[in-house]
Amino acid sequence: MEAINAFIAQYGALMAQGTWDAIVMTVLSTLFAYVIGIPVGVLLVLTEPGALHPHRIFNSVLGWIVNIMRSIPFIILIVFMIPFTRAIVGTSLGVGAAIVPLTVSAAPFVARMVEQSLAEIDGGLVEAAQSFGASTWQIISKVLLPESMPSLVRGLSITFITLFGFVAMAGTVGAGGIGDIAIRYGYQRYQDDVMVVAIVLCVIIVQIAQSICSAIARKIDHRVR
C-alpha cells in the first residue's frame, strides 16, 4: 500500500495528464477522421459501377488516393507531415500537432469502413426509395446512413482503438500522452512500474471504448432481438 501511495504521489499527476492528453488526441482525431471519411466513403459507393451515380474515372482516382494514404505507415507519415503540421497549428509538438497526422492517417481508413458498411445494405431498400421519388441526398440521409449505423458504430470502436495505438506512437516524437510517458520514464529511465501502469491504463481505456461502442451498436441494430 505504501508503494502505491508513493507511486501516486510521484507520478499520479503525470499519469493523469498523459491519460487525458491521449484521450483528447484520440477522440478529436476520430471525430475529424469521420467528418472527412464519411463523405469520401459515400462518394466511393455512389460512383461505383451500377450505383446511383456511376463514374468509373472519379471512383478509380478517389479509390487510388485513399489506397495510397492507407499505405503509408503512421510513424513515417507523422514525420513526413511535420512541415504541414507546423503550417496548420504552428508547431510540430504537443497534443494539437499530433491531431493533424492522426486525422490524415485515419480518414482513408474510415472511408473504406464506411464504404464497406454501405455496401452491406440491401439494394432493394435503395430501389424502393428511388421508386418513391427520393433524391440522392434523401437516399443517403434516410436510407444508407441510418441502415448502416450499427456497422458504422462498430467501426467507430475499431477506429478509436487503432488511433489510440497511433497516439502511443506519436508520443515517441513529442506528442505527449501515455506513449510519451512510457517511453521517457518506463523505457529510457528503466522505471518498470511506470511502464506497467501505462499498459494497464491503455488496456482499461480500450476495453471501455469497445464496450461502449458494442453496447450502442446492439441498441440501435433493429436486427438484434
Rank of each mutant, 00 (worst) to 15 (best):
F109H: 06
F109Y: 15
F109N: 03
F109K: 04
F109V: 15
V110Q: 06
V110C: 09
A111L: 09
A111N: 04
A111S: 15
A111R: 09
A111T: 05
R112P: 06
R112G: 06
R112Y: 07
R112C: 09
M113F: 11
M113K: 08
M113L: 15
M113W: 02
V114L: 04
V114R: 01
V114Y: 01
V114W: 00
E115D: 07
Q116M: 08
Q116A: 15
Q116Y: 11
Q116V: 15
S117D: 06
S117M: 12
S117F: 09
L118P: 07
L118T: 00
L118K: 04
L118D: 01
A119Q: 12
A119G: 13
A119D: 03
A119P: 02
E120H: 10
E120T: 13
E120K: 10
I121F: 03
I121Y: 02
I121H: 02
I121L: 05
I121T: 01
I121A: 04
I121N: 02
I121W: 00
D122Q: 10
D122E: 14
D122P: 01
D122M: 10
G123D: 07
G123A: 06
G123F: 05
G123I: 11
G124F: 06
G124E: 13
G124M: 03
G124D: 14
L125A: 09
L125I: 07
L125D: 02
L125R: 12
L125H: 12
V126C: 03
V126T: 14
V126Y: 00
E127D: 14
E127L: 08
A128V: 12
A128F: 10
A128K: 08
A128D: 05
A129I: 03
A129F: 05
Q130H: 06
Q130N: 11
Q130F: 05
Q130C: 05
S131V: 12
S131Q: 13
S131H: 03
S131M: 13
F132R: 10
F132W: 06
F132D: 09
G133P: 07
G133N: 07
G133E: 09
G133C: 07
G133V: 08
G133F: 12
G133Q: 10
A134F: 11
A134K: 09
A134G: 12
S135C: 07
S135Y: 04
S135D: 08
T136V: 11
T136E: 14
W137L: 14
W137T: 11
W137Q: 10
Q138R: 15
Q138E: 14
Q138S: 12
Q138L: 13
I139N: 06
I139E: 03
I139H: 11
I139G: 02
I140C: 02
I140E: 00
S141I: 05
K142S: 13
K142M: 14
V143I: 15
V143C: 02
V143W: 00
V143Y: 00
V143A: 00
V143K: 01
L144E: 08
L144A: 05
L144Q: 12
L145C: 03
L145M: 11
L145P: 01
L145A: 02
P146A: 08
E147L: 02
E147V: 04
E147M: 08
S148C: 06
S148R: 01
S148W: 01
S148T: 06
M149T: 15
M149L: 15
M149C: 10
P150M: 08
